[in-house]
Structures are given as C-alpha cells and as structure tokens.
C-alpha cells in the first residue's frame, strides 16, 4: 500500500486472455441453453412426474455451472469445496423428511374426509 507523500504509480494493465473470456461466455451460453430447454419442455410436455424430474435435474445442472465456474468453486481446493458442499446434505434430508411428512398428513386428511362423506 502506498504511503502518504509517496507518489502513487498506476499498476500496469495485463491484457485480457481471449481463452478465459471465451470460457465465461461459453458457460453463459450453456446456462441460457438449459433455460431454453426448460421452456421447450414447459410448452410441449404434460406436467407429470417425468417433467418434474427433468426440471429438477436441469436445475441442479444450472446450479453446478454457476457454482463451479461463476463462483469459481470448481477451481478451489478440495477441502474448501467439501466444506461448502457437505453441509448441504442437511437440505437434502430436510426435503425428504418434510415432503414425506406432508404427504402423510395429506393422506390422513383425505382419509378423514372420505370417512365423513360415507
């Protein structure tokens, strides 16, 4: 850091590496393409289990590209990658537990209503 009174010299600009810039735009293109595929699916397919599975897989793929390339996590040390990714196991557990719980409540309410109607 420059001290007071000392004349500050502008650091030299390093020229851009076209390969690096190209890679950034390529990742952007992949993300746009995945979103476009989601759109095509939304307008051409029936909304059922298959479509929802496709959506979730494409979303995870997008998340991978954003984290690995844009957030640079793919180029960090393995220990850093794991300390970010391993805690996310709790989210996976949360999804499974909560959705199972909700389905069971749904079944219970539906059964009760069917009983009332009879």
């Amino acid at each position: 850091m420059a001290h007071h009174g000392e004349e500050f010299i502008e650091p030299e600009v390093i020229p851009a590496d076209p390969a690096k810039i190209g890679k950034i735009w390529k990742t952007a293109g992949i993300l746009a393409l995945i979103t476009a595929i989601e759109f095509v699916c939304a307008f051409t397919m029936e909304k059922d289990g298959t479509l929802i599975t496709i959506y979730i897989l494409l979303t995870l793929l997008k998340a991978y590209f954003i984290m690995a390339e844009f957030m640079h996590l793919g180029h960090e040390r393995k220990s850093l990658q794991l300390s970010i990714l391993l805690p996310l196991i709790f989210i996976a557990w949360g999804i499974v537990a909560m959705l199972q719980e909700a389905s069971d409540i749904n079944t219970a309410i539906t059964t009760w209503y069917d009983f009332l109607v009879k």
């Binding site: 949360g94 749904n106 309410i109």
Partner: peptide, 21 residues
C-alpha cells in the same frame, strides 16, 4: 442457502399437504 431452503421446503410442505376439499 439454509434460510432459502427453509422457505422453499416449507412451500413444498404446504403444497404436498394441501387437500382441496
């Protein structure tokens, strides 16, 4: 990420549990 997951999982919970009748 945990906060946002909490919101989205709660949304899924409400949706799975919803019985129209």
């Amino acid at each position: 990420a945990f906060t946002f997951s909490g919101f989205l999982i709660a949304y899924g919970y409400a949706r799975f549990k919803h019985v129209a009748s």
